[in-house]
Design a protein around this nucleic acid. Structure first.
Length: 609
RNA sequence: GGGGACGUAGUUCAGUUGGUUAGAACGCCGGCCUGUCACGUCGGAGGUCGCGGGUUCGAGCCCCGUCGUCCCCGCCA
């Protein structure tokens, strides 16, 4: 075989099958492993599609065999040879290419390689420190697991684009160098060289642009777009992340939900997962009451409100607050808890304003009648773990009020109830995680989608002493709540919704305000006077006055979606070049200081430089 | 900003009450080996115990500081 022929590969080595027997092939790839039996030498050659065994036989070609003996891990080689069927005894069923092997007749080393700092095997992702993996990300990406994640992400994105296209959505790009709108997360800023002292901001999301596209008549828009938020990170949060950004004019919530469900169905199908439509829906109030969370994980059963089943005397004896939720947590198939396991659960409630009765059997001994009613109300079955959570006495709607004093305000009462629900929900999840192997519901498999609707319009910001938009300030209140905006802002519900998957917030959206006067009113409620609103969002308020159609949309977290479909526990596993929890890129070493001249040109001075 | 876990060979880890020369497996290098596929086998090299300071006759181990990675709370409209 000539050197020229070795330059042109005939296909992927990972794609060879029994049907290729007899073909003369040229393969190019990495030396995955080498098994040197002396006069007989096997090389597993790897490329994107997999590995294939190459045989070098000293008897057939001593010179070739001698050169093959020089090969080392991760050398890049071109191999010419013939695909032959393996003897029945030497077939490797663990390998997709295991029925065949390539008898080499030509070999060229295209590149040598230093010994990798860690093994490039699937297990490396679980065993090697993430620090090493991130520093040598280009090597980490070579192993089959990461290759599969990259491919999965591509297929999902492709399916999403096709699904939106089929529904008449146009993908439109929006600016990265834009304007800081100091509401929400911290911005990443980009200094302007031309206008010293002025800055662009990288978008936290293309929110206003997509609304302006609706005003611009685009009608249906989507974009798979990078967003930037300078906030502290988590396993599911990166400083730059990718949103599936969507907006449509003349929206009807059911229509939008249907479109998004269809897109998600196609995205899951691209990952080989079938999901049932439509997704269940639940109001925010119901989610909080039954799951103690605005992102319920439906893989575990809801909690049951059992306060009405407990007589006042028992409530007092258990040191539980009056008029507050009493929630029964049920975790299926956990079985009997050992004394030690119960002891380990007790600290979970420490530091929370709630009382956790992790030993339901004891409650049942003291209050058999009510306990039986609770079991029944929760639908408990044999082997289910039951735990009771209530507000500790002194907490709640009428807490700490002396005789004759008025009860707490409706807002304070709501906040107290919510606090108990939230803590109970956190305990529910903690118990679920603690016994995950036993109930098995957190294992791979289930994809439980859910719409959560009717979010509160505002949240009280205690530090700023003002109302804050719980979604964003362009979200429309429900029509029937507009009248009550000023009287009790905390009771106003928004036309906002989240789509939740397995307890993770996958996306968030709303029907927007499309009338300037309503928008102005909301800004006012948020403590933003007309001048300030004009200074920050003047361009947008002006745009609203030029015939803005009703519009609404949603933004879905692509990284989180792919993470869940990949069965990964961090979005870093599905991002080619992610950053650490301290927002550092260990591979390129960013961020870095810059030269004084560069700073000067931008009119910046850094303390200590 | 707060809390927690971790940091020892290239990798993953062990390292006893503070005590002689810091170990193992894998990987790496060399020898042998014609059916291996996590090849086998024999031999070998490889260490700033994250970094700085302190206590001590003596520190991988104790104390203080610092850096880094991960997880959680706050934060993330």
């Amino acid at each position: 075989m000539s050197a020229a022929e070795l330059q042109r590969r005939t296909g992927y080595c990972g794609a060879l099958r029994a049907g290729d027997v007899g073909r003369r092939v040229v393969l190019q790839g990495w030396v995955h492993r080498r098994r040197d039996l002396g006069a007989l030498l096997f090389v597993d050659l790897r490329d994107r599609e997999g590995v294939c065994q190459i045989v070098f036989n000293q008897e057939r070609d001593a010179g070739l065999h001698a050169r093959a003996a020089e090969l080392r891990s991760e050398y890049v080689v071109a191999v010419g040879g013939e695909v032959v069927r393996r003897d029945a005894a030497t077939v490797n069923p663990a390998l997709a290419t295991g029925e065949v092997e390539v008898v080499a007749t030509a070999l060229e080393v295209l590149n040598t390689a230093r010994t990798p700092p860690f093994p490039l095997t699937e297990e490396a992702a679980d065993t090697v420190s993430e620090e090493a993996r991130l520093k040598y990300r280009y090597l980490d990406l070579r192993h089959p697991g990461m290759q599969a994640n990259l491919r999965l992400r591509h297929k999902v994105v492709n399916a999403i684009r096709n699904a939106f296209d089929a529904q008449g959505f146009l993908e439109v790009e929006t600016p990265f160098l834009t304007r800081s709108t100091p509401e929400g997360a911290r911005d990443y800023l980009v200094p302007s060289r031309v206008y010293l002292g002025s800055f662009y901001a990288l978008p936290q999301s293309p929110q206003l642009f997509k609304q302006l596209l609706m005003i611009g008549g685009a009608d249906r828009y989507f974009q798979i777009v990078r967003c930037f938020r300078d906030e502290d990170l988590r396993a599911d949060r990166q400083p730059e992340f990718t949103q599936i950004d969507v907006e449509m004019s003349f929206p009807d919530q059911d229509t939008l939900f249907g479109i998004i469900e269809g897109v998600l169905r196609d995205a899951c199908a691209a990952a080989g997962r079938e999901i049932a439509l439509p997704f269940p829906r639940m109001s925010w109030d119901e989610a909080m009451a039954k799951y103690g969370s605005d992102k319920p994980d439906l893989r575990l059963p809801p909690m049951t409100e059992v306060g009405g089943l407990l007589p006042a005397a028992a409530r007092e004896q258990l040191k539980l607050a009056e008029g507050m939720p009493l929630l029964l947590i049920r975790i299926p198939n956990v079985g009997e808890l050992s004394r030690r396991e119960r002891d380990e659960l007790r600290p979970l409630a420490e530091g929370r304003p709630v009382r956790l009765f992790e030993d339901f059997a004891r409650v049942a001994r003291n209050f058999p009648g009510p306990a039986a009613a609770m079991r029944q109300a929760s639908g408990a079955e044999e082997g289910d773990l039951l735990a009771l959570v209530g507000a500790a006495a002194g907490i709640g709607a009428v807490a700490e009020t002396g005789a004759g004093e008025a009860a707490a305000s409706p807002a304070e009462a709501r906040a107290a109830v919510r606090a108990v629900q939230t803590h109970a929900g956190a305990l529910r999840l903690a118990l679920g995680q603690r016994f995950a192997e036993r109930h098995g519901r957190f294992g791979a498999g289930a994809l439980r989608f859910l719409w959560v609707t009717e979010f509160p319009m505002f949240e009280w910001d205690e530090t700023e002493r003002r109302w804050a938009a719980s979604h964003h300030p362009f979200t429309s209140p429900r029509e029937e709540d507009v009248a009550g905006l000023e009287r009790d802002p905390g009771a106003v519900k928004a036309r906002a919704y989240d789509v939740v998957l397995n307890g993770i917030e996958l996306g968030s959206g709303s029907v927007r305000i499309h009338r300037a006067e309503v928008q102005a009113k909301i800004f006012e409620l948020l403590g933003m006077g007309p001048e300030e609103a004009k200074a920050r969002f003047g361009f947008f308020l002006e745009a609203l006055q030029y015939g803005t159609p009703p519009h609404g949309g949603i933004a879905l977290g692509l990284d989180r979606l792919v993470m869940l479909l990949a069965g990964a526990s961090s979005i870093r596993e599905v991002i080619a070049f992610p950053k650490t929890a301290r927002a550092v890129d260990l591979m390129v070493d960013a961020p870095t200081p810059v030269a004084a001249a560069q700073l000067k040109e931008l009119g910046l001075r850094v303390p200590g430089m």
